[in-house]
Structure formats: C-alpha cells, structure tokens
Write a protein that binds this DNA or RNA. Structure first.
Length: 281
DNA sequence: GGAAGATGACAAG
DNA sequence: TTGTCCTCTTCCC
C-alpha cells in the first residue's frame, strides 16, 4: 500500500478525524508505551505528509513521526472502539474516531528540529504544493546512476515507490537503465508533471491506476466491479504477461534489492531527446 | 500449518 | 551486497 499517495491520503484522514481534538494515545502492543504517554491527553493540531513520512503535530511542539515501511497500516474507524486486533503499535482515540497503527518501520515522538533535519534529506514530493522539482533535477543531471535507481532514491523525488517507479518509466517509454546524466530537461519535466497528476489521482482513489483508457483491459476504473481492487498497471508485477501496448512479455530483474518490471520493446528511450509526439506512448 | 513475499529503509561489512 | 526489522496475506503442502 504505502507509497506517497497513501501517506498524503492518510494525513488528510487523520486531519479530518483528529485535528483540533484532545486525543487519547496508547500502545496496546506495548512497544510504543513511552511515546504514547507523551502524546496522551494532548491536542492534535495538524497532520502532514512528506514523501512516505507522516508528521502529526501536537500541542507542546511534540510531533508524532510515522513511516509505514513495506506493509504498515494506519486504519481509522468510527467509535465505539473495538478491542485491538493483532499487533497495534499505537491507538489514537477521540470522540470522532479511532485509528490503529500496525507494523510501521518508524513510530516516534520527535521535536521540530528533528523533523526539519529529516525533511531536509528528502527530495521534492509531487504531492506537496511547495515542492521544488529543480532540486531533483540537480541530482539527476549529473548522475551516472540509472533512472530506475534514481527514481527510488527519496532524496531525488520523495514519495515514489516500486509501483510508481516502474509505471512512470513505462508511461514515458524510458529504458530503466538510462543514466540520469543523459536525460534532457524536457524529459525530466514530463516525468515530474506526469507524477504530479498520477499521484494526485492516487490520493483521490486510494490506489495506483496508471493505464490510459485506450489500453484498459478491465471495466472502467470507477465501476463497481473494480471497486476496492488493486488499480490497473502496465508492468508492475506482470512478469511474463503480455505488454498491454505491444504484447511483448513483461520482464523483471532485481535492481538494488527490489523487483523492477519493464517492457523491453516499449521502453527504449534513453531520455536524450524530448519527444515531439504526444507524451504517452 | 508453514513458507514466501510485499508498494521500505537502514546498518554493517 | 547482505542482513535485519516490522506485520499480514497468499500460496502450497
């Protein structure tokens, strides 16, 4: 679940459910008892996300920092609260809602200074209005690393994960091995703008859909049949299946410990030149 | 019932 | 590059 859109969506949900309220904080699992005690019975003021990081600001300048990692969840339900199921690291309770945090990589209470240090290491987040894509470009343009590697680097663009990486490369027909150095500014701008649009859609729908209507193989993405299902994608986890555009078998290879998926036929651009054709495919 | 994976990130060597 | 941590789901026997 958790790429940047999930965290952005979560920030909104927690804001709607808790901001302005005094909340009860507890760690049913026991592994965050001390931190929960620091937040318990204080008011939550605002919640924001930056990349895959979530920050909930409380009065007295305490900040709850959460990173969901690969499989963490932070689920909000309506009261009355049921007994915690499974390993609940943190439970927040207000008059309006109950939120259970499970399996996070990070769950900590931090100071504004610590938050600032953390954020200073993160690249622009396509979901933030204050994002400056120039900062990402500055790293890409002088890097010999491949685009596939650069796109997973949170200091280049924050919030992208393994799904968005594979899909954005496909949508722009870019070879995953293309070195950052060779990519021209126009191509970078196209990637960034597309990510802004795609990820905002992800925030709205709660899932990652990257397939253009002309290539869709399933019922319309807002139909009851697709409700709640994983979004439709071009290559992610489609190893061996035919490319939705050309029919070539989708390939996979481990790049820096993560599975990369791509179509060797569609994705041949080096990024050297801006395309004169329509942006997608 | 158990192993393997999973949309992540870090430290150690 | 490998190992480690966190939890849940899926798949195979």
């Amino acid at each position: 679940m958790p790429e940047g859109h999930t965290l952005h969506r979560l920030a909104g949900e927690l804001t709607r459910c808790f901001a302005g309220d005094t909340v009860a904080a507890a760690s049913p699992q026991g592994r965050f008892s001390e931190g929960a005690a620091l937040l318990d019975a204080t008011r939550m003021d605002a919640v924001e996300s930056w990349g895959k990081h979530l920050f909930a600001h409380f009065e007295t300048e305490r900040i709850l920092h959460v990173h969901l990692g690969l499989y963490g969840t932070f689920l909000t339900t309506l009261p009355p609260a049921e007994p915690p199921r499974g390993a609940v690291r943190l439970r927040l309770t207000s008059q309006r809602a109950v939120a259970d945090l499970r399996g996070p990589t990070v769950c900590a209470v931090v100071t504004p200074e610590q938050r600032a240090t953390l954020v200073s290491r993160l690249g622009p987040d396509p979901l933030r209005a204050d994002a400056d894509p120039e900062r990402g470009w500055a790293l890409v343009r002088r890097s010999r690393r491949s685009l596939a590697s650069l796109l997973m680097d949170q200091s280049v663009i924050s919030g992208i994960g393994n799904v968005y990486r594979a899909e954005i490369l496909f949508r722009h027909r870019l070879a995953p091995t293309a070195p950052g150095q060779l990519v021209v500014r126009g191509v970078w701008d196209e990637l960034w703008e597309d990510l802004v649009v795609l990820m905002h859609q992800g925030v709205e729908t709660g899932r990652i859909d990257t397939v253009l209507p002309i290539h869709e193989t399933r019922p319309a993405s807002d139909s009851p049949l697709t409700e709640g299902r994983r979004g439709e994608v071009y290559v992610y986890r489609r190893t061996g299946q035919p490319c939705l555009v050309c029919g070539t078998r989708v390939r996979t290879r481990v790049v820096e410990g993560r599975n990369l998926y791509w179509c060797p036929t569609c994705q041949r651009r080096s990024g050297r030149r801006r395309r004169s054709e329509p942006r997608h495919l």
